[in-house]
Design a protein around this nucleic acid. Sequence first.
RNA 1: GGUCCCAUCGUCUAGUGGCCUAGGACAUCACCCUCUCAAGGUGGAGGCACGGGUUCAAAUCCCGUUGGGACUGCCA
Length: 482
Amino acid sequence: MNGPRVRFCPSPTGFFHVGSARTALFNWLFARQNHGTFILRIEDTDESRDKEEYVGVIYEAMAWLGLHPDEGPTRQSDNTPAHELSALALLEHGYLYYCDCTGADVDARKAPGAPPGYDAYCRDRGLEKSATTALRFRMPLEGTTVVHDLVRGDVVFENRVIDDFVVVRSSGGVLYALANASDDRDDRVTHVVRGEEHLANAPKQMRLWEALNDATGVEVALPVFAHLPLLVNEQRKKLSKRRDPVSTELYRNEGYLSAAFVNYLALLGWSPRGDVEIAPLATLIEEFRLEDVVPSPAFFDVKKLRHMNGEYLRALTIEDFVSASEPWVNPWNREWRPSDREPSWREDQFSPDLFAKVAPLVQERVAVLGEVPAMVEFFFLEVPNYDEVAFAKVITNDPLGPAMLEGALDRFATLETWSAPDLHEVVQTLGGEHGIALRKAQAPIRCAVTGTLVGPPLFESLEYLGRERTMARLRGALVRRG
RNA sequence: GGUCCCAUCGUCUAGUGGCCUAGGACAUCACCCUCUCAAGGUGGAGGCACGGGUUCAAAUCCCGUUGGGACUGCCA
């Protein structure tokens, strides 16, 4: 395979961020379209923040999104020897120097208003390796470094404003800038597609890359960059783990379909041709262009995601909708289930057959699968969960309420065929006798049987619930009223 | 503070000098449909940040202003 080579390199520091998902997706789309290679590299070199359990979080999220790597997953920590060799080669060729300054030292030397960053104090001190010396990169003092960016065009950085950054800790650990550049170079990465927050790292990594070419004698072409626009919240700030709902797992738990989620993510900074937004994956792969990605930040709009998910849900066949709902309505003994919720009914109260029957009624009424249980719980609970405000309004405080309930009890008992159309007609007639429209007549019955005033169509619901259970609830509501 | 990025309806975007009286989608409003709630249908309101240029012609090119953001770690 000689197509482009891209990589996605998350660190296992917690949950999987929606911004990471978008970055991974764009890398993946680009690779698929160009018959390239999508590499997954876990950047786990920060022992203070990384946790092994979080690596699984990354795999799980990517599997859910359907973004399977062509190479890897590899672990950056496995490349430590290569990083050390890179550092050694750089040191031997004079690209690095030892420095024993602490942050406090640098600050103390700095006059007010002086440029930030390291002041190159140790550049020519000729320090030797010791327990307190870090290795810094000798940035060129003149000239510019131009980052060729597919999204932003050429971005020019003056070399003199980039300080001599640390490349190897005094403890010996190789830092991100070098580790990442070294791995990308070794992996023959051709396109670096990542978030905009990394733009300032690009010139450093380009210098490192070229220094490595020189020091190792192995010439590898510099990658092309594509810095994707940031995902921001309504305050136009970068999405943060603290304030914003940014975990992909959260969305999965709420019942977003991965296809809808992926489709929405693709719309953040890019759009397919024409006036369509809901597009199959094949179209996304075919039409995606890094150079068409817009450079401005995008707000992650959950409302739009919700709407799109509703569209995807309604487009499902009923069989697919039923099985997609399983983790929420029948989570017992499943390989995956939402981690933060459970149905209000017990396993032995659930009926797959009944659910399959009522599923069409709820399919077009939910935007996320997490809303399904509340909509169907009255089918499975012995006694529905009553909305007290609704109950008081149409049953306790409305004299017509009990009248309707008693009337329904009376007629339902003798109804010949227990079917939605007949039920519909009976209630309509009953209402007519009391001088009220069907919309008003059905309310107390709905509340008595389902517990609320909103939900799936009433008469179909009664049909599926059955005569016995319906009658029992009508009586129950009358008793409950007192 | 320094460096860099960004700027079309509230939001995501289409638009790459004339097809723009700026298109679509979400959200919002009204009406229709209707057993509730949805879904669906129809229609409405709503935007090129500002100022200079360049050009016969600018949302589109250039400069500036303003506004927003990112980075500025011996984290990634």
